[in-house]
């Protein structure tokens, strides 16, 4: 119990002191995860919408594969990206390994299937409601994709938040491809892993408390914005 109490008071102290190193780590965490979500959304959401409206042989297999990819172990994704981005790998000439960009790529690879699978579920329900009306108005499945993405924007925000949660909580992949370099690729989760390694469990837990508070705040803000807007549009 002492350790837990110490963790919370350390967390408060860290935040109150406005420690610039902590602020930099928090800033990088947010920057990497938000960019990863944007990148993954760019691919995942249209893919999810396409799967929601398209009917083709093998579609079931694709959906099953996507759902399975949601469980892709972060370390495996990390290793994959590591081998691709390594100087000795096929994308080595860009020199991205051990940079924040590599972490963005790794997180995006991890969450793109999540965004695609969840958005497919959400949009398939909407497509059942919309399909006949949209066809009548002149939109076939292909034209329906942007329509569904826009009309599903409130539900999709929740999907994006799920992706953000997974991205910001992830440690295995960013540790492998980012290298946890102090002041450059160290984010909240790798900092927590490092302090755990050093046996400073209260500090590690305090960083965890700060991370949770940030994720909670982001979720609360986004959810509030979503609810207000959804109430406006009738949801």
């Amino acid at each position: 119990m002492d350790d837990l109490g110490a963790a919370f008071s350390t967390a408060l102290g860290l935040v109150a002191a406005g420690d610039p190193a902590l602020a930099a780590i928090v800033g990088l965490s947010l920057r990497v995860s938000v960019t990863a979500v944007a990148l993954a959304a760019f691919v995942g959401l249209p893919l999810g919408a396409l799967l929601a409206v398209a009917r083709f042989p093998g579609r079931r297999g694709v959906v099953v594969a996507l759902n399975a990819l949601m469980g892709l172990p972060p370390v495996v994704a990390g290793l994959l990206i590591y081998l691709l981005l390594s100087r000795s790998g096929p994308l080595g000439r860009f020199g991205l390994l051990f940079t924040p960009s590599a972490m963005v790529v790794a997180q995006a690879v991890l969450i793109a299937p999540i965004l695609a699978a969840l958005s497919r579920q959400v949009l398939e329900e909407m497509w059942e409601e919309y399909a006949e009306q949209l066809r009548s108005l002149g939109a076939g499945p292909r034209r329906a994709v942007p329509t569904l993405l826009w009309d599903g924007r409130f539900a999709l925000l929740t999907v994006l938040l799920a992706g953000f949660g997974r991205a910001s909580a992830e440690v295995g992949a960013v540790m492998v491809v980012g290298g946890n370099i102090e002041g450059f690729t160290r984010v909240m989760t790798t900092a927590i892993a490092l302090e755990t390694s050093k046996g400073d469990l209260p500090l590690a837990l305090a960083l965890g408390v700060v991370l949770m508070a940030i994720v909670l705040t982001v979720n609360a803000l986004a959810q509030a914005a979503r609810d207000t807007a959804a109430r406006w549009a009738g949801g």
Partner: peptide, 25 residues
């Protein structure tokens, strides 16, 4: 064009709904 017994309204403004098929066209 067709109007259904229970038309589906897009999750947008009234004006955007009316303009939607014109955009498709």
């Amino acid at each position: 064009a067709m109007v259904f017994q229970r038309p589906v309204m897009l999750r947008r403004s009234v004006l955007a709904n009316a303009a939607y098929p014109l955009k498709l066209a």
